[in-house]
């Protein structure tokens, strides 16, 4: 057997092994999408990967059953605003903590990180009282502010700080000699070079906001202000039993933005990794 044939067999073995490992991850996803096209009876009938009759109507009923379009929009705009604000706040705070020498900066980082040790479930009640005192219940404001300035924002800030610390200081010195201010260096040098970190923060933040369940459950009460995680649990019959065909169709729809974010951010990460530092 030649070396080339050995490599080919090795490669085939790898593909088969990885395909087997992938089944537990991919199958539930395919099952969800496929069941979104089935009737409720078919879902609980003879199991089949593909529907006998493709019920496209499920996807129309999802929008008729409750203000799903509005709820979908709520989730998208909240996740985008949270992601955008988190990127701005965490990159500014991360840069300051990484590069500006001030008394107590390390202590501040330790203090911020120690806040991560407190579970969100513990702080939800005091947060609720605070938000109610501010008159912001049943609005989207807490769903935006809490992730940006809460534990999720701290994680993002820490990630950005670590990345900025690894950027070559010479580049910033060159920027200073070129006439950039501190904010100019952040905007025109540090940020463009931090695309992998920004992409990672964007993915984590978007997904966190997209999947947020406890806070919307506590702070929201109007159906048209619901976000998707709340709305998905709302496809029930008058007796409170889940309408599986609608729930699975809606869940399939809910996955679309996540996939788009992954595709965009992943490309950013790969492209940015191609850039090297100052020498090589």
């Amino acid at each position: 057997m030649t070396y080339r044939q050995q490599q080919r067999i090795k490669r085939i073995c790898w593909v088969i092994s990885l395909s087997i490992v992938a089944i537990p991850f991919v199958f539930p996803f395919l099952w969800m999408v496929s069941s979104g096209f089935k009737s409720a009876n078919e879902i609980f009938g003879q199991p089949s990967l593909l529907p006998d009759v493709w019920r496209w109507r499920n996807f129309v009923e999802v929008f008729e059953y409750q203000p799903f379009a509005r709820q979908y929009f709520n989730s998208i705009y909240i996740a985008l605003v949270v992601t955008g604000l988190t990127l701005i706040v965490s990159s500014l705070a991360g840069y300051a903590l990484a590069r500006i020498r001030f008394a107590g900066s390390v202590l501040l980082v330790v203090f911020l990180l120690s806040a991560l040790m407190v579970p969100e479930e513990v702080t939800i009640i005091p947060n609720f009282f605070l938000i109610r005192w501010l008159g912001l219940t049943d609005t989207h404001v807490p769903l935006i502010l809490l992730p940006v300035f809460g534990p999720q924002g701290v994680v993002a800030t820490f990630l950005m700080r670590q990345y900025f610390m690894a950027l070559p200081k010479d580049l910033e010195d060159a920027g200073e000699l070129d006439g950039l201010s501190r904010i100019g260096i952040w905007w025109r040098i540090a940020l463009p070079l931090s695309r992998p970190a920004l992409a990672a923060v964007a993915i984590i933040t978007f997904l966190h906001s997209w999947n947020l369940f406890l806070e919307p459950l506590v702070f929201l009460s109007s159906l048209e202000k619901f976000t998707l995680p709340l709305a998905l649990g709302n496809f029930t019959d008058p007796y409170g039993m889940p309408l599986w065909h609608l729930q699975l169709a809606a869940t399939s729809l809910a996955v679309v933005p996540v996939i788009i974010v992954y595709v965009i951010a992943q490309r950013q990460i790969v492209e940015s990794f191609a850039m090297t530092g100052v020498k090589g």
């Binding site: 010479d170 580049l171 010195d173 060159a174 006439g179 070079l193 850039m275 020498k279």
Partner: peptide, 28 residues
């Protein structure tokens, strides 16, 4: 630094990796 009328060449070159040669040279 930018107003002293000096220019510096660094050991590490300190070229901006996200800019082309032309953009690097004209950045200042």
């Amino acid at each position: 630094a930018a107003r002293r009328g000096v220019a510096m060449v660094f050991q590490s070159y300190a070229l901006y990796p996200h800019l082309t040669v032309e953009q690097n040279m004209g950045f200042g």
